[in-house]
Amino acid sequence: MSILQYDFMVRALLAALFTGLAAPAVGTYLVQRRLALMGDGIGHIAVTGVGLGLLTGQSPVLTAVIVTVLGATLIEVVRERGRTSGDVALALLFYGGIAGGVLVIGLAGGSAQTLQSYLFGSITTVSVTDVWTVIALAAGVVFLALGLAPQLFAVCQDEDYAKVAGLPVRFYNLLTSVLAAVTVTVAMRTVGLLLVSALMVVPVATAQQLTKGFKATILAAMGLGALASLGGVVTSFYVDVAPGATIVLLALAGFAAAWPVGSLLRHRRHAGAPFEVDPGLPHLSVPEDHRHTHGVDCGHVAVRHGDHVDYVHDGHRHAHHGDHYDEH
């Protein structure tokens, strides 16, 4: 494999793999909590963090983690206080974050080039230290997102029930936001701050087209995220295109491919969902003759109904009853 001969490509692939796993893991919770755009907001705030790092001579990743965690906490507090003004408050944070970032990066003498490398990622220039930071942070995020899945799932699924079960709901909500903040900083070098949110949301949306359960969704989303990230980096090696944008477009292509399948699956599941049993219904035999016997291959939709099967045709549900069919 010629691609692995270059150290910078190995580093890029490692960073992509871990980002691709971590972003959808956290994204699953954000999507369920209807905070799909939160990653975007945190991304904007991270620009200020990067600027502060450049200004003070600290590692931009470190300062970005600190600033985004503070920002995420603030967003969570705003969200908890009142849902109505939540989106406006989020917008204020977005713009404050990016304006502050541009200002501070300018003060620090950073060029438009520097800013762009954080906004759109520069995965092929990650250093060895960067890779280790990305791996460590991403592994931590994945560990918590999967390890605490039963608790975090319960909080998303039914917050009231989680409270009655004695779970510290506020803590788990805050934890999700902090994990999102860390993930954004992790993905900053891979896909860039402006496209982070895509990697958190799109694989989840794709997975949801095909999965029934929560665990399946989060695992499938992680797989899709890793696939898109690796695919994006490899593509950009052979074709001269921006890796960050390629990753996001690949993820979107995955969604475009999954959507028709999901649509079909949902239709099938809906049509095949068992009918409720009500033993109190009167007996109604079907007056007209049946030209064929209903069965596995008769072409009519067969739906479970208690201990037997109803066959759906022309808006009727017919069930075998002795030598005739009943209207159910």
Binding site: Q32, F153, Q157, T211, G213, F214, A216
Partner: peptide
């Protein structure tokens, strides 16, 4: 609206 199986 959250994907979840009965078992989950």
């Amino acid at each position: 609206g959250i994907p979840a199986t009965v078992l989950e």
